[in-house]
Design a protein around this nucleic acid. Structure first.
Lengths: 224, 224
DNA sequence: ACAAAAGTGTTGACTTTACACCCATGG
DNA sequence: CCATGGGTGTAAAGTCAACACTTTTGT
């Protein structure tokens, strides 16, 4: 259908993903530099316009792949952003996603026709962002903090499994808190997010540590 | 801007609210009957097209007021729905909200130019719905169940405060579970959602019960 | 005085927190 | 053999689930 009514003609949808990683105990987010107007030269989160022939998640995946070359990650929709003037060009509503990825597995951050650069930024050193992406990133980080205690969203950070000391350092980075080693272990195993493998690996010390992996299906715990 | 590219021209945004109430221990949702195509004659959730001059929440409020006459409620955005063919007319993405309202305070369910009827339906007796509103309602109910244990979303159900037996019956209706009276009381007061008033009121028995009210600002409890 | 619902407290099971010592390995 | 981080147990405090009797009021 061709829209005539000025009240709601010329609307569009953005799919925007805050892609996080944790590197050496530092939480980082992937930003790309815009090559075109609006916000030419500004850093923004990964994303762009949704196509008519794709579902929301598909669009987000496509944008991630187009702008960064990254494939095969899990993302989770968390909120829509729709302030009237969030885009200077036309009325756009953004559907926000979060995703987590192992920075070691990202080989290529592509130069594409829409982006001139892409890089990981520590979340406490974020440059000014275009559109309303500072707001989206802020909410995305809060959502990430909620997700990691009730889902396997961190699974993709550790494709080969993870040791508990390594996992603890990751949680401490994302939640910005320190934990007791013994209690963290008990809590993690109790949350039912991870399970033992028979492997061991070395993290920071010389003593090999047991390797765990995130479960496929998580059943959250209820308050009532 | 006028959109030319066929990949993303003619898109639009719906704002859809699942408006709940609890009446006599039965959880109900407000449905309206469509007067026009598409889905003429079908029941749907409250909502419609977002205008260019309003934020998402404003649009949801306007639709609620236009279609039902209801004003002054709290709503909360919970999820976006964007399957390619969710609207047969053109590409529409729906932003879903939930809201709760005291059925006693709804005097008029209006006949408007777009709706021929509106009524509360028990959630286990929902007729076939137009668009993807069955999916939206399903997710909305799950969200409502999560919200009531961590926010004051039920506040608007009880504008004059609520007794604990009444509140318990409400929780049991929404969560579809029974609770022990003493433990429910302890849990509720511990969740820090409600506070004592000095009033008493009668609910089902002859003995007056203490009246509580929902707090304005809720600080949720953390798992870590 | 009786019926009907409101209010209240305790115990045992479990969970959470705080805390300190030994272990395995590489150099 | 020593330095580094990995692994483990316990006791005290707090939380949660199960359970029964007394109180208030209307009729």
């Amino acid at each position: 259908m061709e829209v005539r009514n000025k009240l709601y003609k010329n609307q569009g949808i953005h799919v925007i993903t805050a892609l996080f990683t944790v590197e050496e105990g530092i939480t980082k987010v992937l930003l790309i530099k815009r090559k075109n107007n609006p916000f030419k030269g500004d850093w923004v989160l990964t994303g762009g316009a949704l196509y008519n022939n794709e579902d929301l998640e598909e669009g987000a995946y496509r944008e991630i792949k187009e702008k960064t070359g990254i494939e095969n990650i899990n993302i989770k929709q968390f909120k829509a952003f729709g302030k009237v003037n969030r885009s200077p060009v036309m009325r756009m509503v953004a559907i926000g996603f979060i995703g987590v990825i192992d920075w070691k597995s990202v080989k290529v951050l592509r130069e594409t026709k829409n982006t001139s650069n892409a890089d990981w930024f520590p979340i406490d050193k974020i440059p000014p962002l275009g559109f309303d992406h500072e707001e989206i990133l802020h909410d995305a980080l809060i959502q990430l903090q909620k997700e990691i205690v009730k889902s396997n969203i961190l699974k993709s950070l550790f494709p080969d499994g993870v040791t508990l000391p390594e996992l603890q350092k990751t949680y401490e980075a994302i939640l910005n808190k320190k934990f007791d080693r013994r209690n963290f272990r008990k809590k993690m195993l109790n949350l039912d997010l991870i399970e033992d493998t028979n492997k061991v690996d070395k993290f920071e010390g010389n003593k090999p540590a047991k390797v765990y992996k995130f479960k496929e299906n998580i059943k959250g715990k209820d308050i009532f």
